[in-house]
Design a protein around this nucleic acid. Structure first.
Length: 266
DNA sequence: ATGGTTGCTCGGCAA
């Protein structure tokens, strides 16, 4: 039985990372990939090399910063760009794709939640308002009772166990009480957080800073998550963090986080 | 360690 493999990866610049990305696509053979921080406009996205490996490509880019994309072996039935709820928000942090499977519709979101640092600037309330918009949007989508996967860089450390040295993050937007509470509110709408649902172990990380030897010291944090609707969670079979990618030449500071769902393309 | 590193763009911001 072939399961559907869905992966989220903050690639930290898709043009700087194209060799890594192509090598990883061949090695990992995902069905659907959610990318964040592509850091390019749509026209600059290296789509042709990726399409040559059999992927459909949909992007929501922005000049210089942010930007998200979905790569899929399945054809897209529908694509939606931008998180609803604030027409004045220009930042490219959200793209949704809809696919057909043997068990009905599958909705997959690639999201790049605002970092929010430094706390005390306008960046932190922007993060919290973005999270409130995401919660409202997710509540509407859950009412559809479809398999829904919200995958991405949440910039949220959910619990102390999700950092090697939580003391280093106490003043950081990623671990503020308001941030963690907003993440719990989202989960408590009815989502399963895939990775934490299959392990209670510490030292499970998805990001290691480039600075101060964080990778060598395993000074990591777990901030890349996949939230599953009940219909997706019922098909969920396994999760894995592809940590070895962090040791490659010219790595992203994040690694791919993968799940398998017991679904096949329609 | 008020540093450290990387990407985008070529000074300074964002992370």
């Amino acid at each position: 039985m072939k399961f559907m493999k869905i992966v989220t990866w903050n690639i930290n610049g898709v043009r700087a990372r194209i060799d890594n990305l192509l090598h990883w696509l061949k090695e990992s053979a995902p069905d659907i990939v959610c990318l964040q921080e592509i850091k390019t406009v749509d026209e600059g996205f290296p789509r042709f090399e990726i399409e040559a490996l059999g992927y459909n490509v949909e992007t929501h880019g922005q000049k210089g910063f942010n930007g998200v994309a979905i790569l899929s072996k399945l054809p897209f039935d529908e694509v939606n760009r931008g998180l609803p709820g604030d027409d004045s928000d220009e930042q490219a942090r959200f793209i949704e794709g809809v696919f057909s499977t043997d068990k009905g519709a599958l909705r997959v979101v690639s999201l790049y939640l605002p970092n929010g640092n430094p706390v005390g600037t306008e960046k932190f309330p922007y993060k919290l308002s973005w999270m409130a918009r995401l919660e409202r949007w997710a509540a509407e989508r859950l009412a559809l009772e479809e398999a829904l996967v919200l995958a991405g860089d949440y910039n949220v450390i959910p619990e102390a166990i999700d950092a090697r040295n939580i003391e280093l993050w106490l003043g950081d937007a990623l671990y503020q009480p308001e941030t963690r509470q907003a993440f719990r509110r989202l989960e408590n709408l009815g989502f399963t957080e895939a990775v934490r649902s299959v392990t209670d172990q510490p030292d499970v990380y998805t990001f290691w800073d480039y600075q101060a030897g964080a990778w060598q010291k395993n000074n990591g944090i777990r901030i890349d998550h996949l939230l599953l609707s009940p219909e997706a969670a019922n098909r969920f079979t396994s999760a894995s963090i592809e940590k070895h990618v962090r040791a490659w030449e010219k790595p992203s500071d994040h690694v791919p986080v993968a799940i398998d769902l017991n679904l096949v393309a329609a």
